[in-house]
Design a protein around this nucleic acid. Structure first.
Length: 549
RNA sequence: GCGCCCGUGGCUCAAUUGGAUAGAGCAUCUGACUUCGGAUCAGAGGGUUAGGGGUUCGAGUCCCUUCGGGCGUGCCA
């Protein structure tokens, strides 16, 4: 709809002057008196065409006013053009939605651009926590939305299954395993992993292997421990993600990158570019050349690479795989690291504008207005599974998506569980269920949409009905904004508003009226389309649309 | 110190990317169920968009500055 108006204006603008700024907008004004759509075209072009806004606006109006699609075009304020659309055009658009069904809103907006979305990438040293849950809801929804509007997105999880922390994981398991065989360790090391799940893993390993592991060399045993722990924890993480309806297209393993020699490759590229030097037995990256505050260590004095090296190597593979857009979804504590990474990408002469980093801010879990400390000892919610047990998948996903990524998130656990209008998830789902129930009722009184006659659409002449249609027509621009800004929260707001409009409409007008079957049919048709749009929106957030609640 | 993010009614957040009178929900108060699901709806109060300056037809949005909060600034990952 917006594009149609935009094109109409552009045509008449071209008739007036050859040179003009095409960068004007067509928007839905927030005040009803300003019409259905408004444009700033006359304001923007006033300088270029050397014409006063009102004069220019009048010329455009004269050119467009004979079109049937516009009920009226008015000039207002400093020179806005306010369009009122004829209802007939809205009815046509409503039918298009109905015809498209669940494909409505899909488009080629993304032009098949290849987008890599890396998210969660939690350490493989324990179950996923609520921070990963936010990242999961965010990344997966962004994926769904981008896919719907014609991007080619790709979901990836990076596993840091090599290096220091994994060795500590193996040692932690070793200690717990020895405990099972009566070898109490004197003091559990501070840096080791303290979680109960390590004990579970030890018990599981013990039932498989028994005492056999003690006959191995320490090196072999630790290797076995490491691989066992990594495999099992991976399984635990995958099963949490399945519960959360989050899938990945690829799991990238750091261990594999190392085995394939990609770290050396990355290092040699940096060396070739003349960006490395040795000092104090360590190898440095001269990242100051690329805007970093100081040079960074690549190879430590003990010969091991720092965390930066595999990460550079990993990003090298991202570039080599030919993505147009590379999105890293990270925690807020990573931005120090990203400046180093970005410096390396510039050093490798890769296009660093392709790399975008989204920082998801911290989460507070709230219970009765109090912040819940994420401490296992107090029996509080820490893991993603515990959160899912407590509030369910739909509520968890909605609450995580509801706020923009750059905002700190207060997650009210009690609210998420409530089944009333205070809880936005239920409010939206209830709208869907309610429509379902009305349609069922309609069938009982022999009103079914199969016998629907297009002419009945004229009965939808209330402003509230037109507003509902307008709102639904807005879906694709909402999706485009979600994708462009990497901000799926806009969709959560949208569906909440749409559900609200429906609830209000329902309360105000009787939909099934046996005395007036034509009107009833038209309204049933309208709400059935509302139902589809709600369902599409929820689905793009990974939230279900239950027919009954 | 330097860098990044943030600051909008009592609370949690929006605001179509610079548009017209800054909107929702919660909380508070007042109303509405013999009728399609009251898990809902109608209405009310509540704001100098942290303060100040600038850019222009026009600023919550962009620039400068002050203040306040979060995070980062490892030969940890």
């Amino acid at each position: 709809m917006k594009t149609k108006i935009y094109n109409d204006i552009l045509k008449s603008l071209k008739k007036i002057g050859a040179k003009c700024d095409e960068n004007f907008t067509v928007e839905i004004p927030n005040v009803a008196e300003h019409g259905d759509f408004s444009s700033n075209v006359a304001l923007i072009n006033t300088k270029i065409l050397k014409m006063k806004p009102h004069v220019l606006a009048q010329k455009i109006v004269d050119d467009l006013s004979n079109k049937r699609d516009y009920k009226s075009i008015e000039i207002a304020g400093p020179g806005f053009l306010n369009f009122k659309i004829a209802n007939s055009l809205y009815y046509k658009e409503l039918q298009k939605i109905s015809d498209a069904q669940y494909n409505y809103g899909s488009s080629n907006y993304g032009k098949r651009k290849k987008v890599l979305i890396e998210f969660i990438s939690a350490n493989p040293t324990g179950p996923l926590n609520v921070v990963s849950a936010r990242a999961g809801a965010y990344g997966d929804s962004l994926f769904r939305i981008m896919e719907h509007i014609g991007f080619e997105p790709f979901r990836e999880f990076y596993i840091n299954d090599a290096g220091n922390q994994v060795d500590i994981l193996a040692e932690s398991l070793e200690i717990r395993y020895r405990e099972l065989h009566g070898h109490e360790c004197e003091e559990f090391p501070f840096e080791a992993y303290h979680g109960e799940y390590i004990k579970d893993l030890a018990a599981e390993l013990n039932t498989i292997e028994g005492t056999k592991l003690f006959h191995m060399t320490e090196e072999d045993r630790l290797e076995r421990m490491k691989n066992f722990a990594l495999d099992e924890i991976h399984k635990i993480q995958v099963s949490s993600l399945n519960r959360f309806d989050v899938q990945f297209d690829n799991w990238m393993s750091e261990k594999k990158l190392r085995a394939e020699g990609i770290l050396e490759e990355a290092l040699s590229y940096l060396a070739e570019a003349g960006c490395t030097y040795e000092k104090d037995d360590a190898v440095f990256f001269s990242s100051t050349k690329f805007g970093d505050e100081k040079d960074r260590v690549l190879i430590k004095a003990d010969g091991n690479p720092t965390y930066l090296v595999p990460d550079i190597a990993y990003h090298l593979t991202k570039y080599n795989r030919g993505f147009d857009i590379i999105i890293d979804v990270l925690g807020p504590d990573h931005h120090g690291h990203v400046s180093k990474l970005r410096a390396a990408i510039k050093a490798l002469e890769l296009d660093d504008s392709k790399l975008e980093v989204v920082y998801l801010q911290h989460i507070n879990l709230l219970q009765e207005g109090e912040v819940v400390k994420m401490s296992k000892r107090a029996g509080n919610i820490v893991t993603m599974d515990e959160l899912l047990d407590y509030v369910g998948k739909d509520a968890a996903r909605y609450f995580f998506i509801d706020r923009k990524p750059s905002a700190h998130l207060d997650f009210d656990l009690e609210l998420a569980k409530k089944k009333s209008s205070e809880n936005p998830v239920f409010y939206c789902q209830y709208a869907f269920a309610r429509i379902n129930s009305i349609l069922k009722k309609a069938k009982k009184v022999k009103l079914t949409l199969k016998k629907f006659d297009d002419k009945n659409l004229k009965k939808l002449n209330k402003a509230d009905e037109i507003n509902l249609i307008k709102k639904m027509l807005d879906l694709s621009s909402v999706l485009n904004l979600c994708a462009d800004n990497r901000e799926p929260h806009r969709l959560a707001n949208y569906v909440h508003e749409l559900a609200g409009m429906f609830h209000k409409y329902y309360a105000k007008y009787k939909i099934i009226n046996e005395e007036n079957p034509d009107l009833s049919m038209a309204r049933l048709y309208l709400i059935s389309v509302v139902q589809i749009v709600i369902s599409i929106s929820l689905d793009l957030m990974g939230i279900s649309s239950p027919k009954k609640m």
